Simulated assay, not measured.
Amino acid sequence: MATRGPVVPEVPFGVDERVAVVLRPLKEAVEVAGGMRGDGLDRYVRIRDLVRWGLLTQEEAEQG
Rank of each mutant, 00 (worst) to 15 (best):
L26H: 07
I47L: 05
V32R: 06
Y44F: 14
L26S: 09
K27P: 00
G40F: 04
G35T: 08
V51F: 11
D39V: 02
L26A: 14
V22Q: 14
R24W: 05
V45A: 02
G34A: 04
G35A: 12
L50C: 07
E28I: 15
D49C: 01
R46C: 14
V45Q: 08
L23G: 08
L23M: 15
M36L: 14
R46S: 09
D42S: 05
V21Q: 12
M36S: 15
G40D: 03
R43M: 02
R48C: 06
R48A: 13
V32S: 12
V22M: 11
D42K: 09
G35K: 00
G38Q: 01
R43H: 01
D39S: 09
A33N: 03
R52Y: 08
I47F: 02
G34C: 00
E28F: 13
V51R: 14
L26G: 06
R46W: 08
G35C: 10
A29K: 15
D49T: 03
R43C: 07
R43V: 03
V22L: 15
V32D: 05
E28C: 07
E28M: 13
D49S: 06
R24H: 09
M36A: 12
V32P: 04
D49V: 10
R37E: 05
R24T: 06
R48D: 03
R37W: 03
L26I: 10
D42Q: 08
V21F: 05
L23E: 07
L50K: 09
I47D: 01
E31Y: 04
R48Q: 11
P25T: 09
R52K: 11
I47E: 00
R52M: 10
A29F: 00
A33R: 02
Y44N: 11
V30S: 12
A29R: 13
E28T: 14
E28S: 13
G35M: 06
D39R: 09
G40R: 11
V32E: 01
K27E: 09
V45G: 05
L41Q: 14
G34D: 09
D42C: 12
G38I: 02
R24E: 04
D42I: 00
A33V: 12
D42P: 06
G38E: 00
V45F: 00
V45D: 00
A33D: 01
D42H: 03
R24Y: 11
V51Q: 12
K27G: 13
